[in-house]
Design a protein around this nucleic acid. Structure first.
Length: 425
RNA sequence: GGAGAGGUGGCAGAGUGGUUGAAUGCGGCGGUCUUGAAAACCGUUGUAGUCUAUGGCUACCGGGGGUUCGAAUCCCUCCCUCUCCGCCA
């Protein structure tokens, strides 16, 4: 949620920011509503002050045996007036709230302006030693490898649940679990995150807090009977850990990492990238979440990207980093890097991670604040999160990059102690 | 699923329809005492909105609504938590 005061003080900057994000310009409307609100508050509070003052006098008058019936009549009228004004005020405030909740964050100044994904900027790439984009044998794609080596069974997954619900079997399941454990261990031991195992169903307030609701509601599963949402990412429960809290200065920065399955309806995206793992309704992800001081959240973002890169370098999987342009940024993000891993069979890069700084956008929605020792005033923290990483796309790249000409797959060295085997055959 | 209890400040825990933003205790912060510390004592200690702003005013006792001149206190409604029983990984 954007800050009304910030909008008021920087109308042109916000206006341009919203245009850059392909969003509706709500600046003038908000400013008008805000002025309306202030006028109403002034009026209603004046009456309330009067009411309180008179109310305090009444017991004294009664004690003195005076007649209070005129006062009662007068105050009755004041009371009616107040409730009328309060009604209008609530209307205006709801209006402001609704508009702001549906308005996206604006991008950081370092983000390139652009309309769509085509204008994202590659900032760097990393290729393992000896890597080549050309293979001297015919590479199999992950679906073929999964079938041949009995690692993945998409048909039976479909039978059990539906299309897009992968079934991992035998060594495929073990490899998946190994990946998750390996990634968690690196973040815990090397990068000093605190491990979280969150609920995978969350309530509506949590979904609102991180910004999935109202704009993305169609993409979420929803269990109507209990009013709960299966999480689309662990970002939701983990960021909401500190919803409605005031943290102290010494708590920050907070770095959490957690594994969870993720559930996405992917409504309207059928037919696009639908093969195998490329777009699924359920996948596994290790998620990093940070709560940071406002002044260094961008340094924290860079560090978070490096934390994710560390995993890929250890696995020796080729990847590149994109800085998303303004038009491709998600609703809540102010800046975002995507990490894409190479798929030799698809002959393209696949998004395996997304690391974002939301600045105070989520914190304001979820009311996550902190207080500095020297200062009485509370401030909103900055929240960040990033996949570290999602296993499905990563698994595609892993299987395809590690395949041998015979159609077997070598287990990456660092995973071998987790899998207990060195080759998938 | 059945029965009951309850939601009050960082925590614990009072609370009468009328100077209750809220007793008391603990914790936190500041101070006195002390070589230092503890103890003791004194003081202080919520969040937000708004304004003609080293101050004033308003709101907040789970959420929403109602009764009343006046509601933490009465009524309605929703939500949540806990205990016991049943079922169960």
């Amino acid at each position: 949620m954007l800050d009304v005061k910030f909008i008021r003080e920087n109308p042109e900057l916000v206006r341009q920011g919203l245009i850059n994000k392909n969003s509706q310009d709500i600046v003038d409307e908000i400013i008008n509503l805000y002025e309306k609100r202030r006028t109403l508050i002034a009026k209603t509070e004046e009456l309330k002050a009067k009411k309180n003052k008179v109310s305090a006098e009444i017991p004294k008058l009664k004690k003195a045996g005076k007649d209070t019936s005129n006062i009662f009549a007068e105050m009755k009228q004041v009371g009616d007036e107040i409730s009328q004004l309060d009604g209008s005020l609530k209307e205006v405030e709801d209006n402001i709230e609704n508009i702001l909740r549906s308005t996206p964050n604006i991008a950081h100044e370092s983000v390139p302006v652009g309309k769509s994904a085509e204008e994202n900027v590659e900032v760097r790439r990393w290729l393992p030693e000896g890597f080549s984009f050309d293979n001297d044998f015919k590479v199999l794609d992950h679906v073929e490898l999964g079938k041949k080596l009995k690692l993945l069974d998409f048909e039976r997954g479909t039978k059990i649940a539906g299309s897009g619900f992968p079934l991992y079997t035998a060594k495929g399941a073990t490899l998946e679990r190994a990946l998750i454990n390996f990634m968690l261990d690196v973040h815990l031991q090397k990068h000093n995150y605190t491990e979280i195992m969150p609920p995978v169903l969350v309530n509506r307030d949590s979904m609102k807090g991180t910004g999935q609701i109202p704009k993305m509601e169609e993409d979420m599963y929803f269990i109507e009977k209990d009013g709960l949402y299966p999480i689309p990412t662990a970002e939701v429960p983990i960021t909401n850990i500190h919803r409605e809290e005031i943290l102290s200065e010494k708590d920050l920065p907070i770095k959490y990492v957690g594994y969870s399955p993720c559930f996405r309806r992917e409504a309207g995206s059928y037919g696009k990238d639908s093969k195998g793992f490329l777009r699924v309704h359920q996948f596994n992800k290790v998620e990093m979440v940070k709560f940071s001081f406002p002044e260094n959240s961008y340094e924290e973002l860079e560090l978070m990207v490096k934390d994710a890169e560390d995993i890929l370098q250890a696995l020796k999987i080729p990847y590149r980093i994109l800085m998303l342009c303004t038009g491709d940024l998600s609703f809540s993000a102010a800046k975002c890097y995507d990490i894409e891993t190479w798929s030799p069979a698809e002959n393209k890069w696949l998004e395996a991670s997304s690391c974002s700084n939301f600045e105070s956008f989520q914190a304001r929605r979820a009311n996550i604040r902190f207080k500095r020792e020297a200062n009485k005033k509370t401030e909103f923290v900055h929240t960040l999160n990033g996949s570290g990483l999602a296993t499905s796309r990563l698994m595609v790249s892993l299987l395809e990059n590690y395949q041998t000409p015979e159609g077997k797959v070598i287990v990456p060295k660092v995973l071998q102690k987790y899998t207990g085997f060195e080759i998938l055959d």
